[in-house]
């Protein structure tokens, strides 16, 4: 690996000051499962690595019924799916977090890193989007909040300015009769990158027979993780039925903008989007009916 300096910081202000001084020649280190590979393969160079895992806010994980779930940006995957409350309240997010590599990766890789890496195929980002997650960004100026669906601007690109870092992810408390799911297609069951990924979130009425609302977001079918807002109007007020699922699937297929690459052709991906949207919605509905939020 190329030589670089290393600094462990305790506050967001320190991290931001170092980022400013380095003028683009510094990288934030959380779990390192993407960063260290990129540095070793020389896809990226840096003069300074700033380790943010000692900033308590960045590794905090807590739920409050009023304010929702706070996930510090550097919190590793295993702590997220290992938290019983998070698993109960946000099963769709947990589906996605469990699929980011194997257990060795879960021990280090963070949700914030998955977001900042901004891969079009990132598993956690569609799940964060359908949960209405806000990304909290820190820097020299005041904190700012950006909806996760606006965070990624292209493959590997985000709204973060050079002197800013992601601090936390905020998921609103789930309403009654709501739940989520994330499903993906990969040739191998584990340790693989998605050909297509689909996150769904639904809220049902008291009887569990009609959608109050619903959201879908897609992975690996556009330059950035893709919310499909058209699905919301297609589900709201409609009966939970195969016909509704099919309509939502068609709308999502029309919104997808897949490319052909070594993982699959554009046509194949579009076909899979339809299948997975139905499966993700069915799973989310089943969970919402069971009372798992």
């Amino acid at each position: 690996m190329q030589p670089f300096e290393y600094s462990r910081v305790d506050t967001i202000e320190q991290a931001s000051a170092l980022l400013q001084q380095a003028q683009g020649r510094a990288r934030i280190l959380a779990g390192g499962t993407d960063l260290l590979v990129a540095l070793r393969e020389r896809r990226m160079t840096t003069d300074l690595v700033i380790d943010v895992k000692s900033i308590s806010e960045l590794t905090a994980l807590h739920y409050d019924a009023e304010t929702g779930l706070h996930i510090g940006a550097a919190t590793p995957c295993w702590r997220i799916y290992g938290d019983p409350q998070v698993s109960t309240l946000f099963p769709g997010l947990v589906d996605a977090v469990r699929q980011i590599g194997g257990v060795q990766i879960h021990g280090r890789a963070s949700l914030g890193g998955n977001l900042c890496n901004a891969s079009p195929a990132a598993d956690s980002i569609p799940a964060l989007i359908v949960h209405g997650t806000q990304a909290e960004i820190g820097g020299p100026a005041e904190r700012r909040m950006v909806p996760v669906e606006q965070f990624c601007t292209g493959p590997g690109r985000t709204v973060l300015k050079p002197e800013e870092l992601l601090v936390a992810l905020h998921l609103p408390p789930p309403p009654v009769h709501s739940s989520g799911a994330y499903v993906r297609f990969t040739p191998r069951n584990e340790m693989d990158i998605s050909v297509v990924g689909v996150a769904a979130w639904v809220q049902l009425d008291d009887a569990g027979s009609h959608f109050v609302s619903g959201r879908v977001a897609l992975a690996a079918v556009a330059p950035t993780p893709l919310p499909v807002p058209e699905v919301e109007s297609c589900l709201a007020g409609q009966q939970v039925s195969d016909g509704t699922f099919v309509k939502a699937a068609v709308v999502a297929q029309e919104a997808a903008r897949p490319i052909t690459d070594m993982r699959g052709t554009a046509d194949y991906r579009r076909e899979i989007v339809g299948v997975l949207v139905r499966r993700a919605l069915e799973m989310a509905v089943e969970r919402a009916r069971r009372g798992a939020k």
Binding site: Y6, L29, G32, V37, P76, Q104, I105
Partner: peptide, 18 residues
């Protein structure tokens, strides 16, 4: 693979300074 504070990790993806 080694255990770091009891958590399974790939030691190739951990910096020794960490």
């Amino acid at each position: 693979n080694v255990l770091l504070d009891g958590v399974l990790v790939n030691s190739c993806l951990v910096l020794a300074v960490e």
